[in-house]
């Protein structure tokens, strides 16, 4: 049976692809986790989610992401993290244990992700973001909750020229159209009608 789901930016897939800069990453799993990283339950959850030598540093510090590969945690605020993984991942199973003092809520359906990549990705974002995105300040592994255009987003730089923009599903259409407009000057040829 075909996948009955419809992602928030499915209707803009074609113009996004035509820019050569952007694409939607739909249906990523995400959990909002709240808890004091000094608590044993948070340390246990961190160790379960990110097995390996990074045990002590499994929860990110301010303004940073932790974990590499498809599963990582973004720092949103003190004691507040967004866990992200591939669509249909087993994140929920890691939360199944009894974790006193930790709150974890599945927010996968609340947001979608626009990924910008290529040499112009940073310039496109900078058109609408007041943060200093220069690599000296905001490099790979950095993340920030901020405003992009007029939408509240979580910005995450995954590689030297690749950014993920987490945006609320109801804001996704607005933000994607704004990004398409911001990207016009970097596109070769005529933009595709939206």
């Amino acid at each position: 049976m075909a996948d009955p789901r419809r992602s928030p930016l499915a209707h803009l897939a074609e113009p996004l692809a035509a820019t050569g800069i952007m694409r939607e990453l739909p249906y990523l799993s995400s959990f909002e986790v709240r808890g004091d990283p000094a608590e044993p339950a948070m340390a246990r959850l961190g160790a379960a989610l990110f097995p390996g030598p990074l045990l002590a540093a499994s929860w990110p510090t301010a303004g940073h992401a932790a974990g590499t590969g498809p599963r990582y945690a973004l720092w949103c605020g003190p004691g507040w993290y967004l866990l992200v993984d591939e669509p249909g991942s087993a994140l929920a199973e890691a939360m199944a244990d009894d974790l006193p003092g930790v709150s974890a809520v599945d927010v996968s359906a609340g947001r979608t992700v626009v990924e910008l990549s290529g040499p112009h990705a940073r310039e496109v974002l900078a058109h609408g973001c007041a943060l200093d995105l220069h690599p000296r300040v905001f490099g790979p592994g950095s993340c920030a909750r901020t405003n992009l255009a007029k939408a509240q987003v979580i910005l995450h730089q995954t590689a030297s020229t690749t950014y993920r923009v987490f945006v609320g599903a109801s804001f996704a259409d607005y933000l994607a159209r704004w990004l398409l407009d911001a990207a016009v000057e970097y596109i070769r040829g005529e933009p595709v009608d939206q």
Partner: peptide
């Protein structure tokens, strides 16, 4: 104090 200096419009 947590995020560093940000624009007034975020507050």
């Amino acid at each position: 104090p947590w995020c560093g200096p940000r624009d007034e419009t975020e507050f």
